[in-house]
Simulated assay, not measured.
Amino acid sequence: MPPPRFSEQLELAAVLTAVGCSRMFVETTLVKWGATPVIDDALLVVSELVTNSVKATGVTTPDPNWAQLGKLNLIGVRLLGLERSIVIEVWDIDPRTPVVQDADFDAESGRGLFLVETVASRWGSRPAEPGKVVWAELPIQPSPGESFHE
């Protein structure tokens, strides 16, 4: 991957509200960069990746108690602006490689990575210390009159 033209990152507590916070972060950053044509796909991708990270390493009860919060982990979200694409990276402390699951049509969950695979030009994961980074690349074509900038 070529060096990014620009990047932004955010660390979040691995709790259910991290999904909404990461969506606001991604939307605000992409508007700032002039990458509005890719916002919808980027919001889908970051929602799925952050949800997976919270499920794997965080607190998923709506009203956690103090004991649960005492063991709270962090997750990270980073956006990279490349020449013709953006990369969304989400890291967590779980070292397991993510796997696309075969979810039933009626299933309420399990389709996250399938959706990421559908909208991203490519995606993958790599080890990190500790844990892993899951990333997805989305091509970007600025709208007429817009430029992709910081």
Rank of each mutant, 00 (worst) to 15 (best):
R122Q: 10
T97C: 07
G112T: 07
P127R: 11
P139N: 14
G58S: 10
I75W: 06
V90A: 05
P95T: 10
Q141I: 13
V50I: 07
E83G: 03
L82K: 07
E117W: 10
R122C: 11
P62L: 11
G145K: 01
E137P: 05
E108R: 12
T118P: 00
G81S: 10
L138K: 02
S47A: 15
P64S: 05
E108P: 01
W66L: 14
E48P: 05
E137Q: 10
S53L: 00
S109A: 15
V45L: 02
I93F: 02
L113A: 02
G145H: 02
V99H: 09
L79S: 01
D104N: 08
R84C: 03
L79Y: 07
V99Q: 13
W66M: 07
L82Y: 15
V46R: 00
N52P: 00
G112D: 09
K55Y: 04
D63S: 05
I75M: 04
I86D: 00
A128M: 12
L72F: 06
G58D: 05
T51C: 06
N52W: 03
V45T: 03
L113H: 06
A107Q: 05
P127F: 01
T97H: 15
V134T: 12
P64I: 01
N52C: 07
R84Q: 15
I86Y: 11
A120T: 04
S121N: 10
T51L: 12
G124Q: 06
E48Y: 00
L74M: 12
P95I: 09
P142Q: 10
R122L: 05
Q101L: 14
K71P: 00
R84S: 15
P127I: 07
R126P: 00
V100N: 02
P139R: 04
T60S: 09
G81W: 01
P95H: 08
V134N: 01
L113S: 05
T97V: 15
G110V: 09
L82R: 08
E117K: 14
R126C: 09
S121C: 13
N52H: 13
W135I: 13
L113N: 04
L113I: 07
N73H: 14
L82I: 08
L72V: 11
R84K: 15
E89K: 09
L79C: 08
E117T: 04
P98F: 13
P142A: 13
L115V: 11
P62S: 14
A103G: 03
I140Q: 04
R96I: 12
L74P: 00
A103R: 10
N65V: 11
S143L: 14
E108A: 12
D106V: 09
V45K: 05
V119Q: 03
S121V: 15
Q101N: 04
L79H: 06
S53C: 15
V46E: 01
R84I: 00
D63K: 12
S47T: 14
F114I: 08
G58E: 05
V50D: 03
